[in-house]
Design a protein around this nucleic acid. Structure first.
Lengths: 217, 217
DNA sequence: ATAAATTTTTAGTCTTCCCTAAAAATATTT
DNA sequence: AAATATTTTTAGGGAAGACTAAAAATTTAT
């Protein structure tokens, strides 16, 4: 039995350790979870005891295979619920994170499998992030940040790195949505801004925005 | 802020006290919640401090207006989620209770209102129980247990009193569903059994079953 | 290579919600 | 109206998960 709090820690370690295989520091987890480092140390010990994490004092923590699978299952739930909220209940994508954060802890295999079917087995959530299947497998569409794409090339907007409300609202306001075809037409070295072109318009985006937009390659 | 545990106690008091206005004993709550009486006393004190319940030592507990509304809001969530699980995810009605028991604690006004709309504002859940609206109001269809209905009369199966898995499975097996028109054709005093007639068949039911079946009057 | 700064851990507490065991109050018998 | 039984409360504690403050280890700077 994995508790709600344990699930949150597993998720944090998974994300910080880029799938949980890299080693993660106590402080990094503390910041992510918004807790004090001492609380993190307590929890890490517990995870290690339960063989969900590998832990050497002062050396950081990583996930075991079981821990990784558990984390993926929580992420699967989170992303399926987000998809439900946006596609079925008509939430806009910047409103769903906090609710999905609660829903991801509901315990029922059957529920999540039926939800998956109800949503017609989506492979990506509303932010473009891949949804693991029930065995924890998923395929990530290859994409690159606009920052790393050469002027003149184009691609479909696959996902966004920053999922803060502010950023998602910016995208809404500027009518940029996942699935849009985007062409990078110019780069201005002076302020590191990019000019991009969509089906409906041409606009200039800052470096800050560009690095958060991922296009298919 | 009302905690998950507090919500469960409010619900229990509400149900035991027939809308929470009757006084309920510590032991009754303990049995309902599956906790010890001493734990119940602790929690009752807390509810009274938060002005969700009226409590006089040794005299039992009842809900305040706020407590009653909070309980109804939890019940609203529970019944909407049950409706979702049955109508949208194709669960059968005996499987949904435990999952709804978790989902009812998800915190988001907006979520539950959108869910309500998505389900097309149902007035009754899959067990025939009324779903309070967002203000806590609901209309109960007038119904009577088959035990209290005179032989020869008929009505629509409105709700079931017992929602245990065993009973719901019995109903499924015998093809009795909410909405069915049922005529009470005979009563056998010897074993207090009833003979009932539906569109598709005639069958005999025990007193035990009869008292759990409510027909519109 | 030490000293200083930072990170991490330990030790001790707090709150929530549950428990057991014993005491107090209320109800039921006789 | 006692005596007995039952119910309810109090007192004291435990596990989970968070915290503060201080100690220990590690890293960085001089």
């Amino acid at each position: 039995m994995v508790t709600l709090s344990e699930e949150n820690y597993l998720k944090a370690i998974y994300h910080l350790g880029n799938q949980g295989d890299n080693t993660v520091s106590t402080n990094a987890i503390a910041e992510q979870i918004d807790a004090k480092a001492s609380s993190v140390t307590d929890m890490i010990k517990k995870l290690a005891e339960k063989e969900l994490a590998n832990y050497i004092k002062y050396q950081g923590v990583s996930l075991t295979e079981t821990g990784r699978l558990t984390a993926r299952s929580v992420i699967r739930k989170h992303r399926l619920w987000e998809t439900f909220l946006v596609n079925k209940l008509n939430f806009s994508w910047h409103e769903v994170h906090d609710i999905a954060e609660q829903l991801e802890h509901i315990k029922s295999e059957k529920l999540i499998d039926k939800l998956d079917d109800f949503l017609e087995n989506p492979t990506h959530d509303p932010h473009g992030d891949p949804i693991p299947d029930k065995h924890g497998n998923y395929t990530k569409i290859k994409s690159k940040s606009i920052l790393d794409i050469s002027t003149g090339s184009q691609g479909v907007l696959i996902s966004v790195k920053d999922s803060s409300k502010a950023f998602l609202k910016y995208l809404n306001k500027n009518e940029l949505a996942l699935g849009d075809m985007i062409r990078v037409v110019d780069f201005e070295p002076f302020d590191e801004s990019f000019t991009i072109e969509t089906k409906s318009k041409t606009m200039t985006i800052s470096k800050n925005v560009a690095e958060n937009l991922y296009l298919s390659v």
